[in-house]
Design a binder for these strands. Structure first.
Lengths: 175, 175
DNA sequence: TATCGTGATGACAGTAACTGACATCAATGG
DNA sequence: CCATTGATGTCAGTTACTGTCATCACGATA
């Protein structure tokens, strides 16, 4: 809900009660909890779609593509779902200000990594590689996202992802 | 508290109320919450010590050591704090059964990685490398720990860590 | 048109995780 | 012997969340 984001940004996450949100949205508290499992979940509304998108992208990539390329390309594609940079910034600020929300974000990322690993396995990628590629892919996503959100970043999201991947490459190559 | 672990193992985390735990421990619910910030925190009681240990190990390692070696050695050293394998197993089972507890564990790991990165920076390791080495080190710790906990693993914790690191090495070397 | 699901919402009561404020009480140091 | 301090108990209160039942709009069907 937009109402929730507004209130979280205005007065902070903890200071905002479920009742507040429901009231602004013009529904009951009970209804609020029918749509969202808990107060935090509001901020991760699109997470399911995002994961579906990534999984579909992995499944649809040509079989000749290497695991790491596959995952990175899928992450780049997420750009389409992340249209509004200002919104993402505000959301990130709210999450950064609250440990409980960071926990939830960590869980979403871990879940995404797990699902991506499974998708790779179904493409025939063997097991230690699949997990590692998936986890690394999520790391690249996170770092790229942070860059995109950051101050002096006129680049597109996809460019940020590519940049993060390049940095990682040069790091591991040096070792 | 031991009381909490017992109850979590007996009847599950969600089914156990703070009141239950307090009663078995022979104190008040209020007292319980004075010792632990929340119900979950009980299972992460040693986390602070563990982090202190890792940080100290990083700080104390010879300046000639490479970042990745430093972190890995620090993780190996944690073996001293993880004496009771059976206890670790039970604890892991409880956590695995509850998403909320997984969230908390993820947060602890992320915090540890952040602190380790900072410790590396203070030893003069430059910035992208410090973060990457720290995060990779935590990953090695996690995988090594899972192996140690697992079924047919007669190895010591330190051996599990070394094994995980070797696997990772051969993976990144191949790419 | 009447009626019969059905799905979304409201109303309400209840549980349990926490929190703040104050009282108590034992150990400790002077 | 008394003052301080730290740990605990007591109690009241808030808020996140859940179960249950009533209501009500709406579309399908007789």
């Amino acid at each position: 809900m937009k109402s929730a984001m507004e209130l979280y940004a205005e007065q902070g996450f903890e200071q905002t009660t479920a009742s507040d949100i429901a009231e602004r949205a013009g529904v009951t508290e009970r209804t609020f909890f029918r749509y969202f499992a808990d107060k935090r979940e509001v901020l991760f509304f699109g997470a399911g779609d995002l994961q579906d998108f990534v999984l579909a992208a992995i499944a649809a990539s040509p079989a000749t593509m290497k695991p790491m390329e596959t995952v990175s390309a899928a992450m780049e594609g997420v750009a389409d779902l992340l249209a509004d940079r200002e919104f993402s910034r505000r959301r990130a600020a709210v999450i950064a200000a609250n440990p409980g929300l960071q926990e939830r974000e960590l869980l979403k990322m871990a879940t995404l990594a797990g699902a991506a690993a499974e998708a790779l396995r179904e493409r025939g990628v063997p097991d230690p590689v699949a997990g590692l590629a998936a986890e690394t892919g999520v790391t690249v996503f996170r770092i790229g996202f942070e860059t995109w959100i950051g101050e002096g970043a006129p680049e597109s999201f996809a460019e940020c992802i590519r940049e993060a991947l390049d940095q990682l490459r040069s790091l591991t190559a040096g070792a």
